[in-house]
Amino acid sequence: MAKSTLSFVCQNCGAAYSRWQGKCEACGEWNTLAEEDTTGATSAPVSLRSKRKGRTFQLESLTGKTIDAPRLSSGMTELDRVTGGGFVRGSILLVGGDPGIGKSTLLTQATAMMARAGHRAVYISGEEAVAQVRLRAERLGLADAPVQLASETSVEDIISTLSEGAVPRLIVIDSIQTMWTDTVESAPGTVTQVRASAQALIRFAKKSGAAIILVGHVTKDGQIAGPRVVEHMVDAVLSFEGEGSQQFRILRAVKNRFGPTDEIGVFEMTGLGLREVTNPSELFLSERDLGSPGTAVFAGIEGTRPVLVEMQALVAPTSLGTPRRAVVGWDPSRLSMVLAVLEAHCGV
């Protein structure tokens, strides 16, 4: 029997320690260390493990014919813009966002559109029952889409089921923190399980050619929970952002091996799901009052799309001895730099 090595692993950043301590020195979080088997050993005896020799493989040169990766459109223009033109066969995408921001709604709409286009799309939920996913689809008006649903958390069972029949073009795993595999002896959601489950799904995607989207939980500071190594393993990391009290959502790419990372997708949350906003400038300037003083329109570039944003300045008298400058929606350090340049060159 292989001897297991136990250590204390931070469930926020994946740092390992030989003994327990209250605060993780790597990320600064408190009470996030849990005891885990970091060797990933299974209960199989050593005598049953394969002892084959390594095989030789052919080495290639840098010169040769390069073929662009074939892409499959999701049916949503804003989603295709962020991914670089669609989903690449065999790619793995990690989508993160705050709870209730609309990740499941976005992916439900994407799988439904691909299924209506004649592609096999599978939605596997580890947090909701099939009936709950159906209720969301009915609310979005997508109940007639031929999406294949399942509520399962075992990675081995998922891969075995998906290997039968035609290869799915799109697979959604919601979420990776609920998956578990028999290859490691840890509880679901731990760093070891998340890393091992993601690795098994990545191997299946590369072997079968199916595009897989992994949904990831986020911490209180907006970072995707679990080990950062998962972000390095996947091909693209997408962040779904927005305020819970506002109806607008922004999808941006933090990492993308097959496309740019400076494009954004703008959505509006409505009663029938997410609506794509193809012209954000019109949206941001729709309620602008031309007669109001202290306002100006700023032209910015997000990827290949120019975005017009209104900036407002408000000045009010204060009874304090030291005036205070505050800014909302803008970096205070950048604002100070802009004002310093204006004062130096324009005499403002």
Rank of each mutant, 00 (worst) to 15 (best):
A2Q: 08
S7Q: 14
F8T: 10
C13A: 01
A15R: 08
A16M: 05
S18I: 13
S18V: 14
Q21V: 09
Q21I: 07
W30M: 08
L33Y: 05
A34V: 09
E36M: 01
S43P: 04
S47M: 13
R52Y: 03
E60T: 05
G64D: 07
T66N: 02
T66K: 05
A69R: 13
S73P: 00
S74A: 07
R81M: 04
R81Q: 04
G84R: 05
G90S: 04
D98T: 12
P99F: 09
P99D: 12
I101R: 03
G102T: 06
K103I: 00
L106Q: 05
A112M: 09
M114K: 02
H119V: 11
E128C: 09
L135C: 06
R136M: 10
L149W: 04
S151N: 06
V191S: 08
A196H: 10
A198G: 14
V215L: 15
D221P: 00
A236Y: 01
A236R: 03
E241K: 10
I250Q: 05
L251W: 04
R252F: 06
E263K: 09
I264S: 09
G265V: 01
F267P: 01
G273Q: 02
F284C: 13
A296F: 07
I301P: 00
E302A: 04
M311C: 13
V315M: 08
A316G: 08
P317C: 09
S319M: 08
S333H: 15
M337R: 14
L339G: 03
